[in-house]
Amino acid sequence: MTKFSKLKIIILFSIFCFLFSLSAIAAKLELNSSVSEIGTGQQFKIDLTLDAEGEDINAAEGLISFPAEMLELKEIRDGESVVSFWIEKPSLKEAGKIKFSGVIPGGFRGILGPYWKGYQPGKVLSLIFNAKKEGMGAVKIRDAKVLLNDGQGIPAETIIFNFQFLISNQAPSSKFQVPSSKDTNPPELFTPEVASDPNIFDGKRFLVFAAQDKGIGVDYYAIHESARTKEAARIDTKDWIVAESPYVLKDQKLRSYIYVKAVDKIGNERFAVLPPKFAPWYKKWFVDTAAGLGIIIVVLFSIWLWRKYRKISNM
């Protein structure tokens, strides 16, 4: 080996060292899976994880692309996501492209647990694919943005790890189970809130809501407004309106009960109810009348007492 080639090796080694050091401090967005060789027709799961690596992260977005001719997207799961609120819920925007954008209020440094030291990366979302066609390919993250929890939205240095796979008829059978009908837990309790603001919906009253599901994620929300109190679980299916937050209320006078249900991807339901802010007209009329009658009775009784007192004192 010449002196020159030795020098080259040393320089390359130094560059490698430098890049390795750099990678240790940048946030990481990584696509990973327990399998990299998949049999044709088999399903497998890819997780997108966020490793904050000592930074404090509060927002992330990106585009996940995959070869649509090789992979069929079966499902997107966000049940275990560290993202609290989605600005753009992960969804298939066009063939082979999944867009996501969300925030983590207060920031994310990693997941703590009693069984490990320090922070572990957190899951952003999971993708379930069906392998359609033999060949090599990659699932990639593009246009990724990870922002620091610093009150200014400064981008964090981010390293992207894509996922490469091989679809082959010789691949060992995948252990991935499509689940998870065993998940009987409904989404977490949630509290819808009514608000209004001149900046949206022309100042009309709207409802906001967000439920978390620790299983595979919330599938949809539905709303029912009614002047009558009901048992939420017995409301007829056709009376529910599938809706997204924020939702413009039909009853702008807030005289109705507002029923909201969050349904997870297994079908488990969680209900929340908001009572009317203002009583319906008939209840108001009844209360006003009763109050008026009460006042009249009290006044008449006082007059009667006063007259009786005067009679006694005149005797």
């Binding site: 837990n185 409904p186 309790l189 509290t191 819808p192 809130e193 009514v194 608000a195 109190t229 009901k230 048992e231 939420a232 679980a233 807030l254 029923y259 969680r270 209900f271 929340a272 109810v273 908001l274 009572p275 009317p276 802010k277 203002f278």
Partner: peptide
């Protein structure tokens, strides 16, 4: 229950309410 599966009380309009905690693990 004569009203609903999970009752919420108070609040209303602009303010939510008290949620009765569910069974958990």
């Amino acid at each position: 229950s004569s009203s609903q599966q999970q009752q919420q009380q108070g609040g209303g309009g602009g303010g939510g309410g008290i949620v009765i905690p569910p069974s958990g693990t």
